[in-house]
Design a protein around this nucleic acid. Structure first.
Length: 276
DNA sequence: GATGACCTGTGA
DNA sequence: TCACAGGTCATC
């Protein structure tokens, strides 16, 4: 579940349902799914016996901190460093987080939602009997330890107007490509970006650096509003433009023909009339 | 900065 | 059988 809203649903599920639980077993049946040198053996050694603590998120990357459990009879001193590695989870195109059999949010639109055991790419079995799984049919998600968070730009849900203007400044690339560049703004994917630009009335192919102060302010408002509204509705697939994302679709706002193009390497829908 | 590659499932 | 899919990476 791929964009920032789905990552946030998954993060929230982990925080609410898995925080404080002890990892008894680590399942890594698909070593291809582990990235940056992590092996099934290494994951087991690093995680077994630890407690899940805070679940954070930056863009689409979910970060789950861990702690070593306190030793019974040996009260921990304030200067004890009891922190363990941070588990980095990325859901790719079709991944979902499942805790105790429950998945966060709506079913995915462009991926199968069946629970095929073979699609479980990574799992933590808890000492209390429950489990956290990542189910991912397409295997484009990933698991890593202590991911580098600096490769990501500011999170889209906390993006200031100043930061947005900085991300766009002097860029000749299409507006959409810049917004989807995770090192500039973290969290926006294909559907959200199309919805944002549609709401802002901006052409996806427009060179990012050409936005004046008014246009970038409009874009910033559209990002804030889109994330808030679609977040409440339940995810990236609940945008107003979504239903019209079909060949020959019409703009839900003014009825004009929608354009279907490839921008930034992704299928892009935009209104031929009001996105300029 | 556009393109293809990665991997697999689904629906036409 | 083919086109397509909400992501990311390496490569020209």
């Amino acid at each position: 579940m791929p964009e920032v809203l789905e990552a946030e649903q998954a993060r929230s599920l982990i925080e609410v349902a898995a925080r404080g639980r002890v990892i008894a077993r680590v399942h890594a049946p698909d070593s291809w799914y582990l990235k940056r040198g992590l092996t099934p053996k290494g994951a087991r050694a690093a995680l077994r016996g630890l407690v899940l603590s805070t679940a954070r998120r930056r863009g689409k990357l979910i970060l789950v901190d861990t702690e070593r459990p306190g030793q019974p009879g040996r009260p921990s001193r304030p200067d004890d460093d009891s922190s363990g590695p941070t588990l980095g989870l990325h859901l790719g195109m079709s991944g979902r987080v499942i805790v105790d059999g429950r998945a966060a949010g709506d079913p995915l639109v462009y991926a199968s939602n069946r629970d095929v055991p073979a699609w479980r790419r990574f799992g933590l079995r808890f000492a209390d009997g429950g489990a956290l799984w990542i189910r991912d049919p397409r295997r484009l998600g990933s698991v890593e330890l202590d991911p580098c968070e600096d490769r990501l730009g500011p999170d889209a849900t906390e993006l200031s107007l100043t930061a947005l203007r900085g991300a766009l400044a002097n860029r000749r690339a299409p507006l959409k490509a810049v917004l989807m560049d995770q090192s500039r703004v973290a969290g926006l994917g294909n559907l959200l970006t199309d919805e944002v630009l549609w709401r802002a009335g901006l052409d996806p192919v427009r060179s990012a650096g050409t936005l004046d102060a008014r246009a970038s302010a409009r874009l910033h408002r559209a990002i804030v509003t889109t994330l808030r509204v679609l977040g409440r509705r339940g995810g990236s697939h609940t945008g107003d433009l979504m239903a019209a994302r079909i060949p020959g679709g019409a703009c839900p706002r003014d009825g004009a023909a929608l354009l279907r193009r490839t921008v930034g390497g992704r299928t892009t829908y935009s209104c031929s009339a009001h996105q300029i």
